[in-house]
Measured scan of single mutants.
Amino acid sequence: MQYKLVINGKTLKGETTTKAVDAETAEKAFKQYANDNGVDGVWTYDDATKTFTVTE
Rank of each mutant, 00 (worst) to 15 (best):
M1P: 09
M1T: 12
M1W: 15
Q2K: 08
Y3M: 01
Y3P: 01
K4V: 12
K4E: 03
K4H: 10
K4G: 04
L5W: 02
L5A: 02
L5T: 01
V6I: 10
V6P: 01
I7W: 10
I7T: 04
I7F: 08
N8F: 14
N8E: 10
N8Y: 14
N8D: 12
G9K: 05
G9M: 15
G9H: 11
G9V: 15
K10D: 09
K10I: 14
K10P: 11
K10V: 14
T11S: 13
T11F: 15
L12V: 14
L12R: 04
L12D: 07
K13E: 06
K13C: 10
K13R: 12
K13H: 12
K13N: 09
K13V: 08
K13Q: 14
G14M: 14
G14R: 12
G14I: 15
G14W: 15
E15V: 07
E15I: 06
E15Y: 08
E15R: 05
E15C: 06
E15S: 08
E15H: 07
T16V: 15
T16H: 15
T16I: 14
T16K: 13
T17G: 05
T18I: 15
T18D: 03
T18L: 11
T18N: 04
T18A: 08
T18H: 08
K19C: 09
K19R: 11
K19E: 14
K19H: 12
K19L: 15
K19P: 05
A20F: 10
V21T: 14
V21N: 13
V21E: 11
V21F: 13
V21M: 12
V21K: 13
V21G: 11
V21W: 13
D22C: 04
D22A: 04
D22T: 07
A23N: 06
A23S: 11
E24N: 10
E24W: 12
E24Y: 10
E24G: 11
T25M: 12
T25E: 13
T25R: 07
T25P: 03
T25C: 06
A26K: 00
A26Q: 01
E27I: 08
E27S: 09
E27Q: 12
E27L: 14
E27M: 15
E27W: 14
K28A: 11
K28R: 14
K28Q: 11
K28G: 05
K28V: 11
A29I: 15
A29F: 15
A29K: 08
A29H: 14
A29G: 05
F30R: 00
F30I: 02
K31I: 09
K31A: 05
K31T: 05
Q32D: 10
Q32C: 05
Q32E: 13
Q32S: 08
Q32V: 10
Y33K: 03
Y33F: 12
Y33Q: 03
A34S: 04
A34F: 03
A34T: 10
N35K: 15
N35Y: 13
D36E: 14
D36A: 08
N37D: 03
N37V: 14
N37R: 15
G38T: 04
G38Y: 06
V39N: 02
V39D: 01
D40T: 13
D40P: 04
D40K: 13
G41E: 01
G41P: 01
G41F: 03
G41N: 02
V42T: 13
V42P: 04
W43G: 00
W43V: 02
W43H: 01
W43T: 01
W43Y: 02
W43I: 03
T44K: 06
T44V: 11
T44I: 09
T44C: 06
D46L: 04
D46I: 05
D46F: 04
D46A: 04
D46C: 06
D46G: 02
D46N: 10
D46Y: 04
D46K: 04
D47N: 11
D47P: 14
D47Y: 08
D47F: 09
A48E: 13
A48V: 12
A48Q: 07
A48F: 11
A48T: 14
A48I: 11
T49Y: 04
T49V: 06
T49L: 09
T49K: 08
K50Q: 09
K50F: 11
K50D: 03
T51W: 02
T51Q: 04
T51E: 04
F52G: 00
F52Q: 00
F52H: 02
F52K: 00
F52I: 02
T53V: 07
T53F: 07
T53P: 00
T53Y: 09
V54D: 00
V54T: 03
V54R: 00
V54P: 00
V54H: 01
T55F: 08
T55H: 08
T55Y: 09
T55R: 05
T55V: 09
T55N: 08
T55P: 00
E56D: 08
E56Q: 07
E56F: 06
E56V: 09
E56P: 07
